[in-house]
Design a protein around this nucleic acid. Structure first.
Lengths: 375, 375
DNA sequence: GCAGGTTACGTTAGCGTTTACGAAGATTGC
DNA sequence: GCAATCTTCGTAAACGCTAACGTAACCTGC
């Protein structure tokens, strides 16, 4: 009975829509829906106290031009009646919604989940909220999502884009909404950006493998985006700087290598690697999922890790340290990306949209584990 | 240089706020902010075509009382001018925001991340959006978040609550907003609910351990919430049904056992287990994180898994299958919870808030892996 | 005692959209 | 051919809030 569904579970007693503590002095919100709940408005409080709506509004927003005494009286009533300002209405007149849009390729991916968490935590302090959308690494879907979210008049967009071409992202700017790209940037598209230096990622991993004594280092590379390209460039240049060879077939493309697919692609890539002669003794993988698949396949072929082949991944996913052979990995500083993004968003909200784009580029950090530790 | 931050990265060419395709026929949005972008309104389209605002609105909402010819003309212009309805304004008058609030204890936790993803995917189809908040398993924070989110006039709340007492959740209902609890319910609080049958979770895991030949089964139990209690009850009753003993010390409490903490608590719990005589030969753990910590500690003590001790976790986290000894785990059907929740939310939106609460209870599914497979 | 300032409010006019209602013109029925 | 309907549109009012301005009342200072 794998999908049994029942409809009686737990206690079924009273409905949670209890009668309100205040006695129905305010009636339902007219036309909109069926809402029979009592929603307190500025008008209600004003009427009760015999002051004007604006005065109540002033008290709530802590404006200077109101007597302390009146303010106290109003705030007391506000609290007692459990008044909540209608942010929708406020938004309509102020032009700010206190909502930030976050679009990422995959919400489950620990990297993006962590960013979302960091971002959300920081924004909360300023009473901003996050509208999230997972684009499933689908460029068209991402585009549609952004288009729809624009209608909600968000104050800022944060996007880890999977577009090939940033053209559709311009529309965000055209709508007058600030945009922060995270993790992924575009070659000829100047834009606020928070992420890690991916060139350094490649450099760091490769330097490490060289330091561990690897002589023939291969790279399972990612897609032809900025991220994939920069990591590959870092890899190549580091080899060159050390005067090391980069034979044909030492760079295997794994494509998108999204979470679900990465392992399979890693396995296939490793098969190509295993067929090489001489066989590489160090592998820098585009991400940890690819690395996991590659490692699995190497095990099956009887390769011992790290002695027979050292492996370094990328992303420092949560489970990487818990694998059979804990995986060395370049950390992407996701938490900090989230927090720094929040900070950037907050400053952006105060600036006119024409301001010069800002970049925050974090240095990656290598976590050395058993999969590449030689001593 | 662990935190190097630079400010020059990638190309810096043009600002993304390009001049709009339409020639400034509509000016900036007045008072609100500094937005110099041109936002097209109903009024603008109406003026261009010499019709009234309402007519344009009718065309956009596909109302019947409009001539096909006029509609076509309007829609063409709408498309050409790249008009987007202002959902904030619409929301103010209709009383619906097309926004759903999701509050979970931890966004990074794969279980909740998956729910968020499933929910978001289904809601997207109906052009609803998700406002998320991570409560960090802090009851007070959760309460504050909900309170703030209420001000945004969301259409529905989806909450995996970490309250001890559901009292604060009533306020959602009082505000006239539907509420769906997920994963966690409350004893005397009737409310819409989507989740897994936690009693069955305990039953399933315990039955399995018994079937594998375990004679002395212990439980590392979770918090004293519905979830923790139901799993423990399922565990106890199954043992009883099979006439098996449950000696003192065979149930060890691990408390909240949130993601970061769970491993540590698992380790500590396992220490208590290891001290028991006779030592248990099967452990049902509250969740996979606890199981991981427990397993680690057991390894250190030289226990062989599953022969010396079989272990079953709960949650079927992504990494559980990739551990040194792949962990058996009761799957929580997170993806389906997300999708079913979306479905419930959608039906709730059409109903008056007084409707009788509905329960969707999914059957858990056991994933048997090496940590408990005896044959 | 009065110009000039300050303090503490109220009045008015929106924000961009939808709903309710009304009215002109076209169409129908007999 | 005229009342009754249907079709297609417009006008007015509202949703809950805030910005801008106005205006009493009260303070100064000399």
């Amino acid at each position: 009975m794998p999908t049994m569904i029942c409809d009686t579970y737990g206690a079924t007693e009273a409905v949670p829509w209890l009668p309100s503590p205040f006695q129905g002095s305010f009636m339902a919100r007219g036309r909109g829906g069926y809402t029979h709940a009592m929603v307190v408005r500025l008008k209600d409080i004003a009427a009760e106290l015999g002051v004007s709506v604006v005065t109540v509004s002033r008290a709530l927003r802590n404006r200077p031009d109101i007597a302390e005494e009146t303010k106290a009286k109003i705030l007391e009533r506000v609290k007692r009646l459990n008044y909540r300002p209608n942010l929708t209405a406020r938004s309509l007149v102020t032009g700010r919604s206190s909502l930030i849009g976050l679009v990422v390729p995959d919400l489950i991916h620990p990297f993006f989940a962590e960013i979302a968490k960091g971002l959300s935590a920081k924004l909360r302090e300023k009473e901003y909220y996050l509208i999230v959308s997972s684009s499933e690494s689908d460029a068209q879907l991402e585009q549609d999502e952004i288009e729809h979210m624009l209608a909600h008049h968000l104050d800022c967009f944060v996007v880890a884009s999977c577009q090939k071409d940033p053209e559709s992202l311009r529309r965000i700017g055209e709508a007058g909404v600030p945009l922060v790209l995270i993790d992924r940037s575009f070659p000829r598209f100047a834009c606020n950006f928070v992420g890690v230096d991916d060139y350094k990622v490649g450099e760091l991993a490769t330097e490490h493998l060289i330091a561990q004594g690897c002589k023939r280092i291969a790279h399972l590379r990612g897609p032809a985006t900025n991220v994939g390209n920069h990591r590959a460039e870092g890899f190549c240049n580091t080899l060159r700087r050390h005067g090391m060879a980069l034979p044909d077939g030492y760079i295997v493309a794994c494509g998108e290598a999204a979470d679900s697919d990465g392992e399979r692609r890693g396995r296939r890539a490793m098969e190509e690697i295993l067929a090489l002669k001489p066989r590489p003794d160090g592998i820098f993988c585009f991400n940890d999922t690819v690395a996991m698949g590659a490692m699995d396949r190497a095990f099956e072929a009887g390769v011992r890790i790290p002695r027979g082949m050292a492996i370094v991944g990328c992303g420092n996913f949560h489970y990487s340290s818990k694998l059979q052979v804990p995986l060395s990995s370049v950390d992407q500083r996701s938490r900090e990306i989230g927090e720094r993004t929040a900070k950037m968003v907050m400053t952006l909200l105060g600036k006119p949209p024409s301001a010069r784009p800002r970049n925050v580029v974090l240095a990656p950090e290598l976590m050395v584990r058993a999969s590449s530790r030689m001593n």
